[in-house]
């Protein structure tokens, strides 16, 4: 298997002039990125009022993803850390405005002005520590908190991501939830190792209280819900919504015990949910006064 670009070099080095041109002239990549962007735009679920919106494209690269936004009539601001990718975007005369910026430093955008954000194949880069001063946790935090602030109430952000493993997915999702977002992960084509695609669908603010995560897509394009494969490892939809009222546990005098809790937590983790780490307090009996 080819190694991940993320493990070769920092993004602004990996996407140099040669790589940026190669990336953008591959008809296969162009097509994949367009499909991913269309799906992300669909998951953004913008109001269907025909009014153009102001959107962000985070890690916009050479503008492949942004073009989908333009085709739908929206205005967008794209930011990327690679000057070479942005140069190609200028060459291709994309319609969005471009910023040379590092999302890990946080977004310098006024509060509440953005109608929605997409990011295609970029956010997993934040999980790397490319410089000694880089702390992935802090960079993810800076990114998600600043994104949360600049989105208007009820706006969504949809990220197509390639996490390297479960830990990375959890790291990203955790940072998003901590910043106040509600939402979860939508997986399209969960049973195909080639076509499998993950989208983080996040909602910001009041209206997120009743946000639900849409279903992923299956081979035949049908949407599939999670209840037909309850115990399946390849869950299609994982909902990690901290605003969702917790199900009241059935009161049981003896309690479920530490073992049961650990097993349940493992199960949740495998589904990509955010699970607090196990500590000596996990499953410990509470004091009576509780």
């Amino acid at each position: 298997m080819a190694s991940r670009p993320e493990s070769i070099a920092p993004p602004e080095i990996f996407y140099d002039d040669v790589e940026a041109r190669k990336y953008t002239s591959s008809s296969r990549i162009v097509q994949i990125q367009a499909e991913l962007s269309e799906r992300a735009l669909e998951l953004l679920a913008l109001p269907e009022d025909g009014v153009p919106k102001l959107l962000l494209d985070i890690g916009c690269g050479s503008g492949l993803s942004g073009e989908t936004l333009s085709e739908d009539g929206h205005h967008w601001i794209g930011l990327d850390i690679s000057p070479s990718m942005l140069n190609i975007a200028v060459e291709r005369e994309v319609e969005g405005d471009l910023l040379l910026a590092d999302m890990g430093q946080g977004l310098g955008i006024r509060p509440g002005v953005i109608d929605g954000a997409i990011s295609i194949s970029a956010v997993q880069w934040l999980c790397n520590a490319d410089k000694s001063s880089h702390n992935p946790r802090l960079r993810l935090k800076a990114f998600f908190t600043s994104l949360y602030k600049c989105l208007s109430n009820g706006a969504r952000a949809v990220f197509q991501v390639y996490p390297e493993n479960i830990d990375q997915r959890e790291l990203i999702l955790n940072a998003a939830m901590r910043a106040g977002f509600a939402g979860g992960i939508v997986v399209d084509f969960p049973h195909s190792s080639k076509k499998r695609k993950e989208f983080l669908v996040l909602t910001c603010g009041q209206r997120s209280m009743n946000a639900s995560v849409p279903n992923g897509k299956d081979e035949d394009g049908e949407s599939c819900s999670d209840d037909d494969m309850e115990e399946d490892e390849n869950q299609t939809v994982c909902i990690s919504d901290r605003h969702r009222p917790r199900k009241r546990p059935k009161t049981n005098k003896s309690g479920k015990g530490r073992e049961w809790i650990m097993r349940k937590k493992d199960q949740m983790k495998r589904r990509g949910n955010v699970v607090p780490p196990n500590t000596k307090y996990t499953g410990r009996k509470r004091k009576d006064r509780f």
């Binding site: 910023l99 040379l100 001063s133």
Partner: peptide, 10 residues
């Protein structure tokens, strides 16, 4: 070239 460089120093 129309692109603001908003990268911050460390």
């Amino acid at each position: 070239k129309g692109i603001p460089n908003m990268l911050l120093h460390e």
